[in-house]
């Protein structure tokens, strides 16, 4: 995996915001490579810059300095409308609060990104049905989000992220609004899909139990990557099925105990 070019390259990126006249450095020279097909977690306390970094990689925002290259495209050099087009084809989004369109059915929600591609109705139908079967909702096509449980809604959300067959899937706290049993189910599903569909997944969380499920875990704090660990139990294979807190997460927990002020919060 190390010989192939990385699917994501974040090349010495910084991101500043202005709060009034005060300059806030949200990302301080982040350098990061993600290998194709990897399942990467990004953990850090609230306000550490996780979402900001994710947004740069997903082409939602531009770095103040530095480059972002995804799948060979230097997205930090694209215009806004070029980026929109790029996102349609290259990224799938999974959100914490699912963010399904309430007035559209599960089927229609999943079909939505395909409407941006030049695709026949029949091919769209095939693709939507396929992915909804994969996430186990083949029987819930005509249900509106309000008629589905939280876990089911997130399955629809995942189906929507994957239906365009994007190389990269980003998930910002995808289990943040689910109970732990439902969270585990969603993580099982993500892992399964990652292996079966060969997706690269970047998952943001502040939950150690969630972080334990990834193959590679990045830790961010105050806008800097401070740790990069591979799960020893899954070095040969991106998928690992343990539902127990892994050694990587245990190590993290120890670090958290050392610096209690940085304890992960909501």
């Amino acid at each position: 995996m190390s010989n192939a070019p990385p699917i994501v390259l974040v090349d010495r990126c910084t991101k500043h915001y202005f709060r009034g006249s005060e300059r806030v450095e949200v990302l301080k020279s982040v350098h990061l490579e993600i290998a194709r097909g990897d399942f990467v977690g990004l953990i850090g306390p609230s306000g550490s810059g996780k979402t900001t970094l994710l947004n740069l990689i997903a082409g939602l925002d531009q770095p103040t300095t530095g480059r972002v290259v995804v799948n060979g495209v230097e997205i930090s050099a694209l215009t806004e409308s070029q980026l929109a087009l790029w996102r349609t084809n290259a990224v799938g989004f999974v959100f914490q609060f699912f963010n399904l369109i309430p007035v559209l059915t599960a089927y229609e929600n999943v079909e939505l990104p395909l409407l941006l591609l030049n695709m026949s109705r029949r091919r769209r139908r095939e693709q939507v049905m396929n992915i909804l079967e994969l996430v186990g909702l083949g029987h819930r096509l005509d249900h509106r989000p309000g008629q589905l449980s939280g876990g089911e809604q997130q399955r629809v959300g995942i189906a929507r992220a994957l239906v365009t067959d994007p190389a990269l899937v980003v998930a910002d706290e995808p289990t943040g609004d689910l109970d732990s049993r439902k969270s585990q189910e969603i993580l099982d599903l993500l892992q399964e899909l990652q292996v079966r569909l060969q997706k690269t997944i970047l998952l943001v969380t502040h939950d150690l139990a969630v972080a334990a499920r990834v193959r590679r875990l990045l830790r961010i704090q105050d806008g800097q990557l401070i740790d990069d660990t591979e799960n020893p139990e899954s070095t040969s294979h991106p998928l690992f099925g343990s539902r127990n807190v892994s050694s990587a997460a245990r190590r993290l927990e120890e670090q958290e105990r050392v610096k209690p002020s940085n304890a992960a919060g909501a």
């Binding site: 929109a84 939505l112 941006l116």
Partner: peptide, 13 residues
């Protein structure tokens, strides 16, 4: 607003 944001994220213009 959330609907609009999601649509834009997906790539709707």
């Amino acid at each position: 607003l959330k609907d609009i944001a999601v649509l834009r994220l997906m790539g709707f213009m």
